[in-house]
Computed example of a mutant assay.
Amino acid sequence: MIKKIGIGVAIAAAWGIAWAAKEAFAIPDYAMWLGIIAVVGVLASFNIESRLSAIEERVIRKDYSGIIAQLEGERHKPQHKQPESLAAGGAIASRIRPQHESLFEDFRWFAALMNRHIADEWAIEELPTTDVQGYEGPEIGRMYDVWYNACEVGRMQVALGAGALLSKEKQRSARVELKLNYLRFIPYRDAHSLLYEIGLLTGSFDRTNGEAFRATAASAATDALTGYLWEAVRQPDLDPWFDFMAEGPYDVLHDQVEHWRKNGIDPMTRWGGDRDGGADI
C-alpha cells in the first residue's frame, strides 16, 4: 500500500514539474502530449521487461532447495538387490556368452568395494537388472543406483569392454559408465573420490609403478570434473548431466575379489555390501 502511495505521489510531482516547464517555456500542447506518451511507453516497456525477466528466472532457474536438503540429509544405507544370475536379471539367455558370465561373477562385489573406499556421503546400491544400456542397444552386465546422502543422484552400469567378445585370449575387459545429476551441488573432493575409485578398480594395474597407476586414475577424475565445470559455467542456465566412463581389465577389483573368495569373506552378507570392513581387505 505504501509503495502504491509513493508511486502516486511521484507521478503527481512529475506531472506538476512538467506542467510548470510547459508554462515557463511555452511548450505547445501537442508536444507535451507526445512527451507524456513517450514517457508512458518507456515505463510500460520497462515494467513488461521486468515481469518477463521474473518469469524467466522462475522457469529457467529451478528451485533446488529440496534437492539440496536431500544432499545434506542423512546418508542412504544401500539395500542391494543382486540378481541371482544374468538370465534372472533380464538378460536374454541366447545372447549370454562365457565372457558375460565371467564379468558378472567378477563384479559381484563391486558395489561393496566401492562403498568401502569412496567418500562417506556416497552409497552404491546394486539393482536386480542385468539388461543394461549399450551404444547400439541392450547389453548384459550389472546396474547400480548412486546416492549422495538422502538423494538418488544417478545410475552406474558395468558391461563388457570394447572387443571383449572378439578377444581370442579372453582377456578381462569391463566398461563402467556413470551418469549423475545435481553434481554442481556436491563438493569437489567427494565427487573426485567417486570417479577416482571407479578408475582405480577398472584400470590396468602396474605392480612395478603403483604411484603412476594411481596418478592416472586421479588425472582422469580431475579432467572429467574440469570439463563439467567448464560447461556449467559456460551455460549457467542449464543443469547438465555428468557422464563418466572408465574401461580396462579391472586388475585391482579382480585381485580383491579373489582375496575375499580365498578367505571365505562375502562382503554382502558380512557387512551388507557397505563400508564396514575392518582390516580384512
Rank of each mutant, 00 (worst) to 15 (best):
I5R: 07
G6R: 05
A10F: 14
A13Q: 04
A14P: 01
G16Q: 14
G16E: 13
A24N: 09
A24D: 09
A26W: 02
I27S: 06
A31I: 10
A31V: 12
V39S: 03
V40E: 05
G41T: 02
S45P: 00
N47S: 14
R51V: 09
L52E: 12
E57H: 05
I60D: 05
R61S: 11
R61N: 15
Y64Q: 02
I67D: 05
I67W: 00
I68V: 15
E72G: 08
E72V: 07
E72F: 04
G73F: 07
K77R: 13
K81C: 07
S85K: 03
S85P: 01
A93I: 04
I96M: 05
E101V: 09
E105K: 08
D106V: 10
F107R: 07
A111K: 05
N115C: 13
A119T: 08
D120N: 13
D120Q: 14
E125L: 14
D131G: 06
V132P: 04
G134I: 08
E136F: 13
G137I: 13
P138V: 09
R142D: 11
R142Y: 10
M143Q: 11
Y144I: 06
V153K: 03
V153M: 06
Q157P: 03
G163E: 01
A164S: 03
Q171V: 00
R172F: 00
E177M: 04
K179S: 13
N181D: 04
Y182P: 00
L183D: 00
L183Y: 01
F185S: 00
Y188S: 13
H192F: 02
L195N: 05
E197I: 01
T202E: 03
G203D: 01
F205H: 05
F205R: 09
R207H: 12
R207G: 12
F213Y: 14
A215C: 11
T216D: 09
A224Q: 10
L225D: 07
L225P: 04
T226F: 12
L229F: 07
P236T: 06
P236F: 05
P240T: 07
M245G: 09
E247K: 03
E247S: 08
Y250C: 09
E258C: 09
E258R: 14
E258M: 11
R261I: 12
K262Q: 12
I265K: 07
P267F: 07
M268E: 14
D274N: 15
D276E: 12
D276S: 08
G277E: 14
A279M: 11
